[in-house]
Write a protein that binds this DNA or RNA. Structure first.
Lengths: 113, 113
DNA sequence: CCGAACAAGTAGCGTAGCTACACATGAAGG
DNA sequence: CCTTCATGTGTAGCTACGCTACTTGTTCGG
């Protein structure tokens, strides 16, 4: 799918994958790809800046660790991040309903309840 | 709702409102507001450029008319626009499902069918 | 006469995802 | 041994696109 359609919803996705457990950037990319059956194959240039945004916003916290001589930055959800995720979920549902009202089949304005 | 989340889906919305009949720009804005119960209150600076994009793309065609001394540009869906709308609908459903898989409650990866 | 609603439009801004690149290490293979 | 690939992180610059703010012009009501 056209990945650029994510605009504005990427943060929510990132928070959602981190909800299930802390992950490092590379693993997040793989998790998104796996959970979406390959639909979401996001480049590093999208993920890393997004994670830094989320960290600046206080929604995630990162810790460095070294695994097999490779530096890893592992991100975990903060309490604020969990709250933000709840908000993102609500926003997503509203967005989904609003757009769906135009794009989903059935129930154009004339249709009675 | 945060209107900027529309990113990438606005074209689909415009095509969808025009599907029900030709409208001029101002009326499109009002139609979007009405059909979304006020959630979508888009400024002219968003709509008019978007309509020109759609016209350049051949998805809509416009005709000028004068009503009560006021110039109106009325937009109607072209055949290509109708096809584009079908594609946008498909894309929307895929997008909705993909994002929903992360943001909707229930059915995290482990859950069996 | 003046302001509000109607109607169209542009210029410039900001956000945010994308492309393309750079850098480093470890494992695998010729 | 040396190259190549997977792992892992990161930045610079581009572009798309919606938003803010403004402009122009008409009709109508107070």
């Amino acid at each position: 799918m056209k990945a650029q359609a994510l605009h504005g919803h990427l943060d929510a996705l990132l928070l959602a994958v981190l909800e299930q457990g802390a992950l490092h950037g590379y693993a997040i990319i793989e998790a998104l790809r796996a959970r979406s059956d390959g639909s979401l194959d996001l480049p590093t240039g999208t993920i890393y800046p997004a994670l830094r945004r989320l960290e600046r916003a206080g929604h995630v916290a990162s810790t460095w660790s070294t695994v097999n001589g490779r530096e890893r930055r592992t991100y975990q959800l903060t309490d604020a991040g969990r709250r933000a995720l709840a908000g993102e979920r609500a926003g997503w549902h509203e967005f989904q309903q609003t757009v769906g009202r135009f794009l989903d089949p059935g129930s154009p304005p004339g249709t009675p309840a």
